[in-house]
Structures are given as structure tokens and as C-alpha cells.
């Protein structure tokens, strides 16, 4: 399998866990995986990306622009910010809830994510997820990253099966939160075809 997957969001949204689950699912099934994360100063309230590269013929730790098969975005503007990485014919899975930057409170530009979603829909195949709504029955929006991962797996385009991912959630997520994460994941999967 050769696949490039970019996971992006804002610091604190759980991109690192999501990318670890994808990477380890692929690895447990014998794939060669490389990944790279933005960490350090950029992490504090800033844009966060994780590049996952599956396959043998990989050299650059970052996905070359125009090569990503899929972008999983936890925030609309972050999806657009990273859209140059998506290949023609690639797919974006994006959460519709915006995260306003601090600068937005100081100087209101009215950013609400709507324009971003419209732009994405115009430019590529795009699954817009209302992660808040999916997570509402769970009583916490904390697990929305795994719900979106569920949507990505359910789309059939991630190249990772439900069974592989379930195994990772069971073994890699903090035991206290496995049950909630599984529910969020199942809720994401259940959206299959319902976009």
C-alpha cells in the first residue's frame, strides 16, 4: 500500500493521537510507515499538522505538496491551509466547527469556518462532519477526533479497516477512555454513506 495522509488541526485537538492510531494500524499490518509532526513553539495555540506516509518508496518525512491521498482536518481553516498537500482526486474529511484564534477576539473578522467549508467543497471531494453533533449523545466533545477517524475509516478511502483501528484504540488509548473512544469511533463509522 502506498498512502499519504495528512492530519491537521489546532494545538489541543488531538491530532497527535489520531495520527498515532493511523500509523500504528498500518504498521501492525506489515506496512512501512513514516510520520512527522509539528511540535515545539508552533504547538501552543497554533496550527498543528501530522504527516503520515505509508509505503516503501518514501524519502521525505513530509508529504510533498500535491501528493496527499487524504486530509483529515479537525478545523475548517486548517483544512484549507493544508489543501496544497492534497493530490488531484484526493479527499478531505473536515470537522465543520471552527476554532477562533486569539487574535480573532482582539479584532473580530467574523471568522466562522463557513467560507472555508464552501471553498473545500468547490475544490475537491469533501466529507463535512458535524463532530459536535456526533459526540452529543456521548456527553462529551472530547473524543471528536476519534469520531472523525471513524468517518475516515468508514469512507473506505483511508486504506485501514475498522478491525485494525479498533485494535489500536483498545491498546493505545488510555484505558480510562477506551469505552468513550470506541463509542465515538462507532458513531463516526455509522455515518457511512450518510453525507
Amino acid at each position: 500500500m502506498n498512502k499519504d495522509i495528512l492530519v491537521c488541526g489546532v494545538g489541543g485537538q488531538g491530532t497527535v493521537l489520531a495520527s498515532k492510531l493511523i500509523a500504528s494500524s498500518a504498521m501492525d499490518n506489515g506496512e512501512v510507515v513514516h510520520s512527522a509532526e509539528t511540535i515545539g513553539m508552533a504547538q501552543r495555540g497554533g496550527s498543528v499538522t501530522s504527516h503520515i506516509r505509508i509505503g516503501n518508496e518514501v524519502y521525505s518525512p513530509l508529504i510533498p505538496k500535491g501528493h496527499a491521498d487524504m486530509i483529515i482536518a479537525f478545523e475548517p481553516a486548517e483544512a484549507v491551509r493544508n489543501l496544497s498537500y492534497l493530490k488531484k482526486g484526493g479527499i478531505v474529511i473536515v470537522n465543520k466547527q471552527p476554532v477562533k484564534p486569539v487574535t480573532e477576539s482582539l479584532q473580530d473578522t467574523g471568522y466562522d469556518g463557513v467560507e472555508m467549508i464552501e471553498y473545500l467543497q468547490k475544490k475537491c471531494e469533501c466529507i463535512v462532519v458535524d463532530a459536535k453533533a456526533i459526540c452529543e449523545p456521548l456527553g462529551s466533545s472530547k473524543f471528536f477526533n476519534v469520531a472523525i477517524l471513524g468517518v475516515a475509516v468508514g469512507s473506505g478511502k483511508l486504506g485501514i479497516s475498522k478491525e485494525w483501528m479498533v485494535k489500536q484504540i483498545e491498546t493505545r488509548v488510555n484505558a480510562k477512555f477506551v469505552e468513550k473512544n470506541m463509542q465515538a469511533f462507532e458513531a463516526g463509522i455509522a455515518l457511512k454513506g450518510d453525507f
Binding site: V10, M41, A42, Q43, R44, G45, G46, S47, A77, V80, R81, L83, K100, P101, V102, T103, E104, T109, Y111, E115, M116, Y119
Partner: peptide, 9 residues
Amino acid sequence: LPKLPVRPP
């Protein structure tokens, strides 16, 4: 590309 919100640390 639309104007993107800046997210300084």
C-alpha cells in the same frame, strides 16, 4: 485561496 485566520503562538 481565502484569507486564513492567523494562529500565532
